[in-house]
Amino acid sequence: MPTKHHWTTTPITADILRGALDTERTANGVLPHRLPASARAQCTDGQLAMVEAQPSGVRLVFRTRATAVELDALATKRVYRGAPPRPDGVYELLIDGRLAGQASAVGGNTLTIDMTAGTAEQQPGAPDTLRFPDLPHGVKTVEIWLPHNEATELVALRTDAPIEAVPPGGRRVWLHHGSSISQGSNAASPTTTWPALAASLGRVELINLGLGGGALLDPFIARAMRDTPADVISIKMGINVVNADLMRLRAFGPAVHGFLDTIRDGHPAAPLLVVSPLMCPIHEDTPGPAAPDFTTLHTGQLAFRATGDPAERASGKLTLRVIRDELARIVTQRATEDSNLYYLDGRDLYGAADFDELPLPDQLHPDAAAHRRIGKRFATAAFTANGPFADRSS
C-alpha cells in the first residue's frame, strides 16, 4: 500500500535558490535567470536569451526531515529540425552532497529551431511532476540541481515535512564565465558538467555563467560579474570569439583588458584566473565562423566545421593559437601590477592527447567522459595547495 504523505508546499524564493543571478515571476511559476535583467536588456540575441535561461549550476537548497520531495516544473525542450531528438534534461537530487535521485520532466514547451533558416518557433505545453520518494529519515541538506541544458520554470515545491533555508557563507563562492563547454554541452547531467565537478572537488559554491555561444567579452556580462559577490573568479574565453568570427586581433586585446578592468572594479583583490581555449583542431589554425556540417546528420550526430581561410590570420583574423598567445601576453603584462591574476592554458585541461583518446563528437564540444577529466584537472590546477584558488584562510 503506497505511503500517504501530508504535503507542505513551500514558495520558491531566492533564499532556497542558488546559482541564479535573477528570477522572473511567470504565469506558471519562477524562471531562474543566470544574467540579471539589466544585462538581458542590453542584448536582443535569441541564442543568449535561450542559454542564460538554461539553469546550469542552479539548484534548490534546503534543510528538512522530509522523506519525499516533489517538484512541479515546466521544461522547454529544444528540437532541431532535421536532427535526431535531444535527450531530456536531468534533475538531480543530492543529500548532504551525495547523489540520491535523478528525474526528467516530460512534455512541457517545445522550441523548434531551424538552423538552416535561422528561425525558432515555440509551442506551449504543460508542467510535469518530478518525484523523489524514499529519502532517508533525519535532518539533511537537500539540493535539487536543475538541468544544465533545458530551461525550466519552477511551479511548485512540495515536501512531506517542513523545510528551512540553508544560510549562505559555509563555503567560498566561485564565479565562472565561459562558453557552451562551461555551460555543460554534452555532459551527462548537471552535477557532472566540468565546472560542477570542479566545484565539488574544490568544496566551493558555484555560480556558473557558462553561456553557449555567449562568451564574447560582452561588457554587460563583465558588469554582472563585477556586481556578483564572489571569493574566486575565472573566465574561460576565446572559442566563441572564433566561432562567431566576431572580432579581429586589434579589437580582441583591448576587449580582454576592458573585461578584466570591469571585473576588478568590483573584485580588486580576488584571485582571478584567465583560462584559454581547450584543444579544438578545427579552429587551432583556421579562423571562423563555425558552421553546422549537415552532411553528418545521417549518422545521428550534428557536427561543425571551420569556414575561414588560414591565410587571413595575417590580416588579424583570430584562431585558437592566436588567442592563447594574446591571452598569455595580456596576463603576463597585467600580472606585474596584479599579483592575484593568473593564466591557465586550456590545453592543460584538454589537449592533443586527450583529443586522440576522447575526440570531440561534434568537433567542438567534449563528451561526458571528457567533462569529468576536465573537471578533475581544473580542480587540481586551481584548488589544490599551490593553485590560485587554494583556501588559505586557515
Rank of each mutant, 00 (worst) to 15 (best):
K4H: 13
P11F: 02
I12T: 08
A14E: 14
I16Q: 10
A20F: 04
L21N: 06
T23P: 05
T26F: 14
L35Y: 08
S38Y: 11
G46V: 05
Q47R: 15
E52V: 09
A53P: 08
F62I: 12
A68T: 11
E70M: 11
L74E: 11
K77G: 00
D88S: 14
V90E: 08
L93Y: 02
R98T: 14
L99V: 12
A105I: 05
G108H: 05
I113K: 08
T119V: 07
E121I: 07
P133R: 09
D134P: 07
H137S: 07
D160V: 09
A161D: 15
P167K: 11
G169R: 03
R171P: 10
R172A: 13
H177N: 13
T192E: 15
T192L: 13
V204Y: 00
L206I: 03
G213E: 03
A215K: 01
A224D: 01
A224M: 01
A230H: 03
I233R: 01
G238R: 04
N240S: 02
A251S: 11
A255W: 05
H257K: 06
T262Q: 13
D265L: 14
G266E: 00
P268V: 02
P271N: 07
V275I: 15
P277M: 00
I282L: 12
E284M: 12
E284F: 01
P292L: 07
D293C: 01
F294D: 00
T296C: 07
K317W: 14
K317G: 00
R329C: 07
R329L: 08
L360R: 10
L364C: 03
H371E: 12
F378W: 11
T384R: 15
G387H: 04
F389W: 11
S393D: 06
S393F: 04
